[in-house]
Each structure stands twice: as C-alpha cells, then as structure tokens.
Design a protein around this nucleic acid. Structure first.
Lengths: 149, 149
DNA sequence: ATTTGTGCAAATCGTTTGCATCTGA
DNA sequence: TCAGATGCAAACGATTTGCACAAAT
C-alpha cells in the first residue's frame, strides 16, 4: 500500500473513486475500486460484463466474472451506471448517466453515445392511462456501408 | 377436421394465411399456419416465444417451443414480423412491421405500439463515418403511477 | 468481531441445435 | 418419393445464486 491514497495522478483525483463509492453507499473494496477506476477513470464508456471482466483481468485485477456482474448491478442501482437494452443477448452498461441516446453498430456490438442535444423527440403521444414516462430511449442502428458507390 | 378450411369467419378470410406463408416462401404446415393465425388473425400483436407457445397450446395447437422459436425467426426473416429489443432478457416480436415506435411497461413486460405519426425524431447527428442508419428505434418506458395525488 | 464482499461452481433461464421421425407437395 | 418440418432433448451462452472464505470497518 503506497500508491493509492494521495498520489495525484489518478484520472479522477486522489481518492475520488473511494469517495464516489462511499457516497453511493458502497464499501470501496479492492475489486470495486478497481472496476470503478476502469469504468470512470477515462471518460464515458460502454461495457458488457465480459468486456469489463477481460479488461480488469488484463489490468491485473483479480476479480471473478460473478463479482463483475454483481458490481455492475450495484453501480446501476446506485445510479453510477445505466444499463441499455440494444442487444437482446448481452446487457450493455453506460457510464454516462446523463440524458442522451445511442448509436448501435450491429456488426461490432458497439454502442456509441450521442449527446442529448442532438436529438429531439417531438410529438410524443400520451402514455397509456395511469402511466407516466420514466425514460425515452432512442437507438439509432447503423451498419457499415458495404463499399463506396 | 371440419372447421378450418373454408368457413367464412376467419379474421383474415379463407386461406389468406396459407397464401401469406406461400408468398413468404414458407410451406403452410400445420403449426406454421396455426401460429400465423394466432399472430396475424387479430390485428397487431406483440409476443415472446413463451407467450406465443402458451397461447398456441391453449388453443390446442400441438407445437413445441423449439418450433415456436424457429417459426418466429422464419417469420422475422421473411419480413412478416419484427423483433424488438426492449427487454434484455426476452426477445419480443411485433406483427406490425411498419414504421412505428413503442411504449414499454416495465412492470408487466408489455409492449404497446405507438403509431409513427406520433413521433418525430429531429436533429439526428450524422452516423459515425462509413456507416448508414438502418433503423431508429424509440422506446418510451413507462411505469404505472403509484396512486393518484 | 461483525458485517459485507468475493470467488467458485452449480443452478437458471432464454434460446439454439442435432438428429430421428413425420408430413406436405 | 423426398425435401423440408417438427419434436425432443441435449447443448449453449449470458446471468444469477449458494455457500465457504477473505477483507473492511
């Protein structure tokens, strides 16, 4: 233990991650902190349990896939992440919890953020009786153009 | 066998279903025709493999879950159905293949069509380089209002 | 010390597939 | 007849869970 507490090179400042976790009511354990560092240390990101798991392992973080799943859900529940349903087979998580939408490249399973400013959904009908809108998701599915015409 | 061939009460006319299947290049077999009748005989519908399977069995149609899955995919590939990704756990299919969007009731896993006329997505950003938009899905997630205020 | 998290492996769940059998044209 | 369908059960991949062990407060 000599590199975590107060250095100054972390992408998010000293113990920002520990604080973020504590604020979210989560104990800053080794793997949680490590996963959080990967997730929140470099701008907005999109991951699936598998990709985060692989990344963590490659970074030398000893963590199990089960813990990655648990952690992703804890982070989502805490509002640090948001799950997005673009792909029926895998669950994608987005570190950008703000209001925005997505591009989805079906070919590569890649999710790309689209700033909210860029989309305006007009003329929404009223929700079914007795319901209120909780979220509006716009997914723009794209495909690589075969070859130039 | 005395009630299926030519009566006149089918919701889609005499052998509309057989024709629809043939046009789609699919042989109108017992289970395919029966599933098609359930799907297309009563206006636009949303089903999952499970719900369609249950419905078919209740209707006395002898069919296996595997065949329901196969059939749903054949219908989708043929353009008779469209799969929608609202729910990460299950795949939902929509008999309305036209341009429209959806409400999704998270509480009941229910999907409700929203006519295209009602939504206008404005100010879409350009797709990532080398990509073209294949589809824009808008999902309005709603929740039952707790109780009236 | 207690409480909470973690890892592993086994259990689940939706979905797909292999293969022997059956059916429609 | 014979290609194409169907059913079953086993295979699968993503995700969850139970439980013994380890770490955080």
């Amino acid at each position: 233990m000599h590199q975590s507490a107060s250095a100054g090179h972390a992408h998010r400042g000293p113990d920002a991650i520990g604080d973020m976790l504590r604020r979210a009511g989560l104990r800053p354990t080794r793997q949680r902190a490590a996963l959080a560092a990967i997730l929140f240390g470099q701008g907005d990101r999109h991951v699936t349990a598998e990709t985060l798991y692989d990344e963590a392992r490659q970074a030398g973080v000893p963590v199990s896939l089960a813990t990655v799943y648990n952690t992703l859900h804890q982070f989502s529940d805490a509002g640090l992440l948001r799950a997005i349903a673009v792909d029926t087979t895998r669950t994608h998580f987005d570190t950008n919890t703000g209001d925005h939408h997505h591009f989805y490249l079906e070919a590569t399973n890649e999710v790309i953020d689209m700033p909210a400013a860029f989309i305006r959904v007009e003329n929404l009908p009223d929700p079914p009786e007795g319901c209120e809108i909780t979220k509006v998701d716009v997914i723009v599915r794209v495909r690589a153009v075969a070859n130039r015409k």
